[in-house]
Design a binder for these strands. Sequence first.
DNA 1: CTAAGTGCAAAACTTTTGCAGGCGA
DNA 2: TCGCCTGCAAAAGTTTTGCACTTAG
Lengths: 144, 144
Amino acid sequence: MQELQLLIQQLKEKGVKVTPQRQAILSSFLGPENKHLSAEDIHLAIAKTYPTISLDTVYRNLGMLRDIGILRELNLGERRVHYELTSNIHHHHLICTQCGDAQEIHYCPLKFLDQDKVNKFKILSHSFEIFGLCEKCTKKGGLL
Amino acid sequence: MQELQLLIQQLKEKGVKVTPQRQAILSSFLGPENKHLSAEDIHLAIAKTYPTISLDTVYRNLGMLRDIGILRELNLGERRVHYELTSNIHHHHLICTQCGDAQEIHYCPLKFLDQDKVNKFKILSHSFEIFGLCEKCTKKGGLL
DNA sequence: CTAAGTGCAAAACTTTTGCAGGCGA
DNA sequence: TCGCCTGCAAAAGTTTTGCACTTAG
């Protein structure tokens, strides 16, 4: 797990303590696929290996990790906020409103945005999410 | 206010009853600028002319108006959901994370999106919001 | 050792829901 | 009249906060 070591390194650089809870939270984002997790998702995912962690701690740390730039906040159209690693290459999502699945799409709208449309606004971040039906759900009959 | 009559007409066409509460809610969206209102915003805005309306009714009707296509739901990065009239021309927003102001931007990312990036996904809707500092807040010193 | 971090409990906030009575068509 | 709507009250669900204890550095 050298990917985890890299993230831990970032914590140290920021002067943030490396606690087992934080390691567990960060670990839950690692793996072959890029993950978009809510606080609850993480709490459940960790529960197996770290049953004593409290949901409060997950919330507090997600906020902190977002603030120091390790995580990015996502609005996937649900009530809950989701997070993903900022170290993943930049992308957006195709979100199925039926099954909730979120595929990544490697197209960024800022690329085609004329500066004069933005004028004096100083862009810091952006969100772009596409909602609809994934192939699987379209086949299943659409509206259901 | 013939704009209001038009919206009321839509309610009738959908077989939805036209109540004073609904008229008040719809009215709050009218005016020279396009408005992005939360349930609470509307409740307050209406309070002057319609002090007895309950917040529950506002919530219920916003959901209903969204479902029948009169309103569109917006995620402006806040905890609260906002709504705007779908009859306004299509646009996105430049949202100031400091003062909360949302300017409209007439650029849509779907325009430049290759179909093959989307593949078999059936697009139904999308969200695109840019976050940063508006001119005013940039001048005030940025971070504060 | 000590400031930062954690868990617990309780609160805050937005949104939803059950129910009884009210009102538009 | 009849069924949709509304208001009230209470609940649900997510996120935040105060406080005392614990722990990483």
